[in-house]
Protein backbone atom coordinates (compact mmCIF):
# COMPACT_ATOMS: atom_id res chain seq x y z
CA UNK A 1 0.00 0.00 0.00
CA UNK A 2 1.24 3.45 -0.88
CA UNK A 3 0.11 6.11 1.51
CA UNK A 4 -0.77 9.45 -0.09
CA UNK A 5 1.27 12.10 1.68
CA UNK A 6 -0.40 15.39 0.87
CA UNK A 7 -3.95 14.27 1.54
CA UNK A 8 -5.70 14.95 4.80
CA UNK A 9 -5.52 12.30 7.43
CA UNK A 10 -7.43 9.13 6.68
CA UNK A 11 -11.00 8.94 7.94
CA UNK A 12 -10.85 8.93 11.71
CA UNK A 13 -14.00 7.88 13.37
CA UNK A 14 -15.46 5.09 11.32
CA UNK A 15 -18.69 5.30 13.17
CA UNK A 16 -21.26 6.97 10.94
CA UNK A 17 -23.68 8.19 13.58
CA UNK A 18 -25.04 11.66 14.07
CA UNK A 19 -28.09 13.10 15.77
CA UNK A 20 -28.51 15.21 12.64
CA UNK A 21 -29.67 12.11 10.79
CA UNK A 22 -32.96 12.38 12.65
CA UNK A 23 -33.65 15.47 10.57
CA UNK A 24 -34.07 13.16 7.60
CA UNK A 25 -37.37 12.09 9.10
CA UNK A 26 -38.86 15.44 8.08
CA UNK A 27 -38.80 14.87 4.30
CA UNK A 28 -40.02 11.31 4.82
CA UNK A 29 -43.00 12.18 7.01
CA UNK A 30 -44.18 15.55 5.67
CA UNK A 31 -44.99 14.38 2.10
CA UNK A 32 -47.17 11.63 3.57
CA UNK A 33 -49.41 13.97 5.59
CA UNK A 34 -52.37 14.06 3.21
CA UNK A 35 -54.46 16.67 5.13
CA UNK A 36 -51.65 19.19 4.59
CA UNK A 37 -52.12 19.25 0.84
CA UNK A 38 -55.42 17.62 -0.09
CA UNK A 39 -57.26 20.84 -0.97
CA UNK A 40 -57.74 23.24 -3.85
CA UNK A 41 -57.05 26.56 -2.16
CA UNK A 42 -54.95 28.56 -2.14
CA UNK A 43 -54.02 28.23 -5.80
CA UNK A 44 -50.65 29.16 -7.23
CA UNK A 45 -50.40 30.01 -10.94
CA UNK A 46 -53.73 28.25 -11.35
CA UNK A 47 -52.40 25.05 -9.74
CA UNK A 48 -54.46 23.72 -6.81
CA UNK A 49 -52.67 23.40 -3.47
CA UNK A 50 -52.53 19.62 -3.88
CA UNK A 51 -50.13 20.00 -6.79
CA UNK A 52 -47.97 23.00 -6.02
CA UNK A 53 -47.47 22.12 -2.38
CA UNK A 54 -46.31 18.61 -3.14
CA UNK A 55 -43.91 19.99 -5.72
CA UNK A 56 -42.71 22.39 -3.02
CA UNK A 57 -41.98 19.45 -0.72
CA UNK A 58 -39.17 18.59 -3.13
CA UNK A 59 -37.40 21.70 -1.87
CA UNK A 60 -37.73 20.42 1.72
CA UNK A 61 -36.27 17.09 0.59
CA UNK A 62 -33.32 18.64 -1.23
CA UNK A 63 -32.76 21.18 1.55
CA UNK A 64 -32.74 18.66 4.38
CA UNK A 65 -30.55 16.05 2.70
CA UNK A 66 -28.10 18.68 1.52
CA UNK A 67 -27.91 20.24 4.98
CA UNK A 68 -27.40 16.88 6.68
CA UNK A 69 -24.77 15.89 4.14
CA UNK A 70 -22.82 19.12 4.52
CA UNK A 71 -22.96 19.01 8.30
CA UNK A 72 -21.90 15.39 8.62
CA UNK A 73 -19.42 14.83 5.84
CA UNK A 74 -16.30 15.75 7.81
CA UNK A 75 -16.94 12.92 10.18
CA UNK A 76 -16.36 10.30 7.48
Amino acid sequence: MTSPQNEPAPPRSRDDRSPLYWLLLIPVVVPLLVPLFNANDPKLFGLPRFYWLQLAFIIIGVGTTTFVYQMTKRRG
Binding site: P27, F57, T65
Partner: peptide, 24 residues
Protein backbone atom coordinates in the same frame (compact mmCIF):
# COMPACT_ATOMS: atom_id res chain seq x y z
CA UNK B 1 -56.69 11.96 -11.37
CA UNK B 2 -54.93 12.84 -8.12
CA UNK B 3 -54.04 9.24 -7.30
CA UNK B 4 -51.44 9.25 -10.09
CA UNK B 5 -49.57 12.09 -8.41
CA UNK B 6 -48.33 9.62 -5.78
CA UNK B 7 -45.18 9.47 -7.91
CA UNK B 8 -44.14 12.84 -6.49
CA UNK B 9 -44.19 12.07 -2.73
CA UNK B 10 -42.81 8.64 -3.59
CA UNK B 11 -39.75 10.11 -5.23
CA UNK B 12 -39.27 12.64 -2.43
CA UNK B 13 -39.32 10.31 0.55
CA UNK B 14 -37.09 7.72 -1.07
CA UNK B 15 -33.92 9.83 -0.96
CA UNK B 16 -33.63 10.62 2.75
CA UNK B 17 -34.16 6.92 3.43
CA UNK B 18 -31.69 5.81 0.79
CA UNK B 19 -29.21 8.43 2.03
CA UNK B 20 -28.56 6.34 5.13
CA UNK B 21 -29.20 2.81 3.90
CA UNK B 22 -27.42 2.72 0.58
CA UNK B 23 -24.09 4.05 1.85
CA UNK B 24 -23.96 1.06 4.18
Amino acid sequence: GAMGFFAVPYTIIIYPMAFLVLVR
